[in-house]
Design a protein around this nucleic acid. Sequence first.
DNA 1: CGCCGCATTGACGTTCGTCAAGTCTAGTGG
DNA 2: CCACTAGACTTGACGAACGTCAATGCGGCG
Lengths: 263, 263
Amino acid sequence: MFIPIADPTKEPVAVFKAGVVPLNMKPQTIKVACSNCNLRELCMPLDLNAEELRRIDELVTTRRKVKRGATLFHNGEKFNALYAIRTGFFKTCVAAEDGRDQVTGFQMAGEVVGLDGIVNDHHTCNAVALEDAEVCVMPFERIEELSREVNALQRHVHKIMSREIVREHGVMLLLGSMRAEERLAAFLLNLAQRLHARGFSPSELVLRMTREEIGSYLGLKLETVSRTFSKFAEDGIVEVRQRHIRILNTPALQHMAHPVACH
Amino acid sequence: MFIPIADPTKEPVAVFKAGVVPLNMKPQTIKVACSNCNLRELCMPLDLNAEELRRIDELVTTRRKVKRGATLFHNGEKFNALYAIRTGFFKTCVAAEDGRDQVTGFQMAGEVVGLDGIVNDHHTCNAVALEDAEVCVMPFERIEELSREVNALQRHVHKIMSREIVREHGVMLLLGSMRAEERLAAFLLNLAQRLHARGFSPSELVLRMTREEIGSYLGLKLETVSRTFSKFAEDGIVEVRQRHIRILNTPALQHMAHPVACH
DNA sequence: CGCCGCATTGACGTTCGTCAAGTCTAGTGG
DNA sequence: CCACTAGACTTGACGAACGTCAATGCGGCG
């Protein structure tokens, strides 16, 4: 099956609890270099020797907190850096000049945002935190410099960009040829799978975005999203309580997401 | 205005006739190194010194002819190289396992295809020639090697990938929130603009793809594409004779593509 | 406790998809 | 050079899916 949303788990990844830190350390004393970050498997290359690991630590100059509702970067802003999400949840959206806007993705811990800014040296979309978040700032100049010397990093950067392109192909398939139920099913499965890869339950999730944001991403109106949730609930496929979702019947949901495999 | 399809003209580009070569040379004697290719401004970085230009010529190992209807690469195939289109016209499409497929883009001379293959070392879509075509084969290993040494090339590769991401954002906006007329208008304007940048008329174009392929790209059925063409013709905005299109009223078309800018 | 934003649900309308018939054109072979 | 054919395109009638508008419900936060 083709999974239409970002999938960093294509490369083997250890399962862990995101955000868990030893209780006997105060938060501000925690050394958060990439080399000992528990998200390293998600946002950094795997096969690094000690020397390379040390150099990779130079990539992140600062970290930055972004409050819920605040923007990490916005359309038109000068592009300087890519951002690796440490904690929190983002949406990215592009705006048509007539005011409509389209959510182009939802990003969570370990994923990288900002790739849109490279072409024109300015960002072409907005990245908005859907919950309080923290990101690692990686100046692009430094990424380019370092990836000339560390082959694994160069390869990694290429893969991250290619992965985003492939993800968007999947979204195009979804938007271009799926019906409402198929879209929502694919969306839920993808979210669940990404959360599962981060150590959360594979069947229980809390949506960080509104029905309207889901609708924008899926090319549907919020009422249609709501109705489709209700239909899934009636059919006993998921349990829906506001933003709390429990997937009761994963195979059924998968079957919805890929329709008529057999005629 | 947001233009939802690949736009290599964001960087300044000389206007020229594609495919024009001196008549006194036999085709097979033509030396086609990047350094003297008339498409260089489109697929290669601009600011290279003589030494770098020479090295760039090493990028293209071979050229490959692809007959109309044949595939350049297909889903599942091992990824080895990126391809710069010298002549001809391609579509790329992803397939859902149930048989539906979605056209993800149309590519013409000077554009690069194959980026989807980098993540998993295998292509995830098909690239099919819509007319007899010729491509420059650029082994990806070599691209990576060389871009470690030629900064402008490194930057260029990053930009090409980022541009593709931004293009796809535009397609998502189109698929997610535009109506049929808006989609087709945006599509025609984009095609015309890209052809214009290659030295063709800004208002007259020959479609290389079927109504069905246009429909797949735009998330519409072929009948809807056909009807929308007819409506544009009735309104005197374009003249349609099969695949020959003449844009009679560009501003009107632009107005269709961005709807209600003012309420 | 009350308010406000988000979510749900219903009734109705529009757009686009489906099905079907018919036309045009480019390409093929006699 | 012309007739034939298959594929592509057009057009119409109808229906389904989703959007729109509106009323109501719910829950979290101050």
